[in-house]
């Protein structure tokens, strides 16, 4: 790769890094995994940089790579750890409701099957249409709509949506013992 291409990649990565890490965080539920995922996706983008730079939407292209890298990594993992910010004990008193809701949302997302989680994140965080998500995930639009519906149902079952809407009923309390392993289908 020429120096000019390297410079171009450097500038692209510097600009897109925060956004990719944030999307990766919602996909993985872990800050550490998010940086790994974004880094792996960008390394693959670097390998095929000529294709990326000539695409209509470079950011979308790399995001698509990241989704595929995430799915590949998920498939390769047979045993996954469960990382949770919650402990079996009752939450401590000085936690703000905001932090609890955020934590509950991330935990609930992590409990969704991979495809549902990806569809929900891309729809509501990246503001992508079901057609765009279908193209990114390599599936049909109707499948994406179904995954979004089921993903929302999962979040609703977890009580997260009600909590976000200000419903006094708190989201259900899960402990590390009672929930499914992260990424495992329920």
């Amino acid at each position: 790769m020429s120096n000019a291409s390297d410079d171009e990649f450097h500038n692209f990565m510097t600009g897109r890094w925060p956004s990719l890490v944030r999307t990766a965080y919602l996909l993985t539920g872990s800050h550490h995994d998010a940086e790994d995922l974004a880094q792996n996706a960008l390394a693959r983008a670097y390998v095929k940089w000529d294709k990326v730079r000539h695409s209509d939407d470079m950011a979308a292209y790399v995001r698509k790579i990241m989704i595929h890298v995430h799915a590949d990594g998920f498939r390769r993992r047979t045993v996954r750890e469960w990382f949770t910010s919650r402990f079996p004990e009752t939450a401590v008193a000085d936690r703000t409701a905001q932090v609890e809701h955020r934590s509950a949302l991330i935990d609930a997302l992590a409990r969704l099957p991979l495809r549902q989680r990806s569809a929900v994140v891309l729809r509501y965080f990246e503001d992508m249409t079901p057609a765009q998500i279908a193209a990114a995930l390599g599936t049909r639009e109707s499948t994406v709509r179904s995954q979004i519906t089921r993903g929302l149902a999962g979040l609703r079952d977890d009580g997260v949506l009600a909590a976000l809407a200000g419903d006094p009923q708190e989201s259900r309390t899960h402990t590390s013992d009672s929930v499914a392993l992260k990424g495992m289908h329920r």
């Binding site: 965080y25 955020r102 949302l105 509501y124 503001d127 929302l152 949506l161």
Partner: peptide, 9 residues
């Protein structure tokens, strides 16, 4: 949901 995801991210 969108706002909460953005806030979390």
């Amino acid at each position: 949901l969108a706002a909460a995801l953005h806030e979390a991210a």
